[in-house]
Design a protein around this nucleic acid. Structure first.
Length: 805
DNA sequence: AGCACGCCGACT
DNA sequence: GTCGGCGTGCTC
């Protein structure tokens, strides 16, 4: 028997199957989708078995080395999905496989050093004695801990006094706990109990316990001694007597365990909700792989529709995936699903440890749960019979993975749904233009929810023209109107949410005498001033430096700070409204684990009057006392060099506005802007999605952007600008030569940020409608520039990019 | 991705 | 003469 193996080296030259001999005794055990280790060239590597067969074109095959998994980690469907992902996103197949599995399944490679010639080691390398005293030392640890020995180690290796043995470490260990159970039938247990000496009270307790619980399942010793207060020595004594037997059980790492919660039940639906749910239900029953776009204003009760559709899926014996943007995956959100479906839910999000994620994943694979709730990668949940995939906030850019494999969860969902014959539900208050356009063309089925669930009107939104504020001499970040309203809320003991999409204190530092802006030495971008620590930070590469006393270019001392970040607003608030309690939420205040949650809880408990934050506060927050939402700078994203800038602004403004007046107290929203006439601002203020859609579609049409054209973005980077430019030039030429005249090829151009982390950047872009030669050509470009391009050139190809910078 | 092989320059 | 730089090519 021969196995086809994909070796886990995500590189084009080895992105194909390699044949290996299957050892005799593995036949029957080894299955497609399992991980193995294989000798590969001079090293040993982890690999995925993708096919079993009996013939090979090779004369001498090496044999598989070790079997890692007792069961396949990739189902047939996921193996195919991986190939499809590799094909459509131009990534190596194993990169796709790795993306579908929890991070613990990534192998760790170590080099163990083994003594070959003991005598010569003692004689010629006395300095290495200590290193080899115990277990075989690992090269990787020695590099860190004993760098002074590396020279001698290399010499010993060269002289064959020691050799390296490549080891592949699998981190995905199922945690086991010692456990025990009765070794004899119940009657015997009882007889033994009777026969015990009167002094053996402890042992009697144990036996009495097992009489109650008698079964053949193991119970963890920890649980027996802890929860049931039994004696550890007594248990061991009984084991020695043969009445109990020791064994192991899997430790359950349930991050949500022990939280008592009341189960919730179906809520009555409004007519609108029912009208939306019915076609979804039909598709579930009839196993149709239709895509629904559920366009519902904030608070229209989309989640209840999801919940009831999932319930339907579960009762028909199938499983459901729910995707939520990472920042929306708050405890409140998870709680909602847990309350409805209890133990049937697995949750996958970045807050879990690697081990916890692995456990949640196993629950899915083993069929212990029916629902998986998670961020982007949860779309790969290894369910066997998918009945429904839901993508909430489908317009969110976080559904697109920015590194290999550059997939969009929406595309993966649609593809998987086709395999499983199940529907997909995309939900949003502000659908992406792509999705809404598809619904207009009847590719997706549009479901509309116009009413808010509790019939509260959407809050009134006023736009404040900041240019006028400037003219009238107000140079603070708050307009007169916003500040008045802010004070009002403070007096009335109500809460305010302030939104500013920039962290830090000032966005750039400029010398007033020579005009120099202080930039990152590694990236072509200005440094942001952070008052904490008096630092200038690069938000791209993390570089930081002290603020210089004088201008580094002309030496004058007239350095001034420009632009406003959350820190500065915080300081202004402290000056203007010193009694108000402010919580600032941005990457800087929430970096610590759980920081996000803690701050939100504090605000919910009304420990603050004002919540000031960046994007991260735009989503899903629901606080009854919030009656005012202020957007400090609505244009902050509007002028970014990205064709989606207007769309993102509209979405953000709509979302932020939805935070006000969700309960009994009426809310209102103030949007401050320097471009009050911009349609994204105006339409958002009027809660008018359709109008925005129409206006934006016209612009996309005129400029030839999605959804009218598809895009491919090709990124070239190199430490030397000329090298990057040359490669980009050649790629653009190849594209022009081989694509049809209908395809529009742009570039090479230098993007807005010309250098990141000391690498110069060049971009080419292709706009196209139908281009059959494109994918093969891109594949060729990919492999060519990877082979010849070991000279520091990096190439990335992004099909349907979401971020153009 | 590693790693061996191989071909050129600067040293013991 | 040899050590070692990294360009090229292969891994079942």
């Amino acid at each position: 028997m021969i196995a086809e193996v994909f070796v886990d080296i995500p590189a084009a030259p080895v992105d194909r199957a390699f044949d290996y001999l299957v050892p005799e005794d593995w036949i029957g055990t080894l299955q497609i989708g399992m991980r193995v280790t294989v000798p590969f060239g001079t090293t040993r590597r982890l690999g995925f078995v993708t096919q079993l067969k009996t013939e090979t074109a090779f004369e001498h095959l090496k044999a598989l080395d070790a079997l890692i998994d007792p069961q396949p980690v990739l189902t047939d469907e996921l193996l195919n999905l991986g190939r499809w992902l590799a094909d459509t996103t131009l990534c190596p197949t194993v990169a796709a496989y790795q993306a579908m599995l929890p991070a613990v399944m990534k192998a760790e490679y170590r080099k163990q050093l083994i003594i070959l010639d003991e005598a010569r080691l003692t004689h010629d390398f006395p300095e290495l004695q200590r290193v080899f005293a115990g277990v075989a030392p690992e090269w990787e640890t020695l590099v860190k801990e004993a760098p002074q020995l590396l020279k001698s180690l290399q010499k010993a290796l060269n002289e064959k006094v020691i050799i390296v043995r490549q080891v592949v470490k699998n981190q995905a260990k199922i945690k086991e706990l010692p456990a025990c159970r009765p070794a004899v039938p119940k009657e015997k247990l009882h007889a033994a109990l009777e026969a015990l000496d009167a002094r053996s009270q402890r042992q009697k307790d144990v036996l009495a316990f097992f009489e109650q619980h008698a079964s053949d399942t193991y119970i963890a010793l920890k649980e027996l001694t802890g929860m049931h207060q039994l004696s550890r020595t007594a248990i061991h004594r009984l084991c020695e007597k043969g009445l109990l037997e020791l064994g192991k059980i899997e430790a359950k790492r349930d991050p949500y365990a022990g939280k008592a919660r009341n189960q919730t039940h179906k809520l009555p639906l409004t007519q609108e909700q029912r009208a939306a749910l019915t076609p979804i239900d039909t598709a579930i029953t009839q196993e149709e792989s239709r895509v629904f776009l559920c366009h519902g204003v904030t608070g229209s009760g989309k989640t209840e529709i999801y919940l009831q559709a999932i319930e339907h899926v579960i009762t028909s014996g199938k499983q459901a995936i729910v995707l939520v943007p990472e920042i929306a995956l708050t405890p409140q959100m998870v709680e909602r699903f847990k309350r409805r479906f209890g133990e049937a839910v697995a949750v996958l999000h970045s807050g879990l440890s690697k081990g916890e994620k692995f456990d949640e994943w196993r629950k899915i694979r083993n069929g212990q749960v029916s629902v998986a709730v998670g961020a982007r990668s949860a779309v790969f949940a290894p369910f066997q019979k998918l009945g429904l995939i839901i993508i909430d906030e489908e317009h969110e850019s976080s559904y697109k993975q920015e590194d290999q494999p550059r997939y969009h969860a929406r595309d993966v969902a649609v593809h998987r749904a086709r395999q499983h014959h199940c529907p997909v539900v995309l939900g949003s208050a502000t659908p992406s233009l792509e999705s809404f356009a598809r619904s207009q063309k009847k590719v997706y089925t549009l479901l509309t929810l116009k009413e808010r669930f509790n019939h509260h009107p959407l809050p009134p939104v006023s736009i404040v023209d900041m240019r006028e504020e400037m003219r009238s001499g107000n140079h603070t970040v708050f307009s007169g109107t916003l500040f008045e309203k802010l004070k009002e809320r403070f007096v009335r003991n109500e809460q305010t949410v302030l939104f500013l999409n920039r962290r830090g204190f000032s966005t750039f530092v400029m010398c007033r005498s020579c005009g120099t802006v202080i930039k990152c030495p590694h990236c072509d971008i200005s440094l942001t001033y952070h008052r904490e620590g008096n630092l200038l930070k690069c938000h791209y590469c993390g570089y930081q430096q002290q603020v210089p006393e004088t201008c580094p270019s002309c030496g004058s001392d007239s350095l001034r700070y420009f632009g406003t970040g959350t820190q500065k607003v915080e300081a202004e608030l402290a000056r203007l409204l010193p009694e108000a309690r402010v919580i600032r939420m941005d990457v800087d205040t929430t970096r610590r684990k759980g920081g996000h949650e803690k701050l939100l809880r504090a605000f919910g408990d009304q420990q603050a009057d004002i919540l000031l934050g960046t994007q991260m506060i735009a989503k899903g927050l629901d606080f009854p006392k919030v009656t005012l939402v202020g957007v400090l700078a609505a244009d902050s994203m509007l002028h970014l060099p990205d064709f989606r800038a207007s769309e993102k602004t509209f979405q953000l403004l709509t979302q932020v506005s939805g935070r006000a007046g969700r309960h009994d107290l009426p809310g209102e929203v103030i949007i401050q802007t320097y471009t009050p006439e911009h349609y994204a601002v105006v339409d958002a203020s009027q809660h008018d999605y359709l109008r925005f859609y129409q206006e934006e579609m016209q612009i996309r049409y005129r400029r030839g952007y999605p959804p009218f054209y598809y895009l491919v973005l090709i990124n070239l980077t190199h430490p030397e600008p000329a090298k990057a430019a040359e490669a980009a030039e050649r790629i653009a030429a190849a594209l022009r030569r081989h694509l049809s005249p209908d395809a529009l090829i742009y570039g090479p151009v230098v993007p807005a940020i010309a250098r990141i982390k000391d690498r110069y950047r060049y971009q080419c872009m292709v706009k196209y409608k139908r281009e059959s030669a494109l994918l093969p050509l891109l594949r060729k470009i990919n492999s060519h520039f990877r082979e010849t391009g070991k000279n520091g050139l990096q190439l990335s190809i992004d099909l349907n990019p979401v971020v153009l910078m």
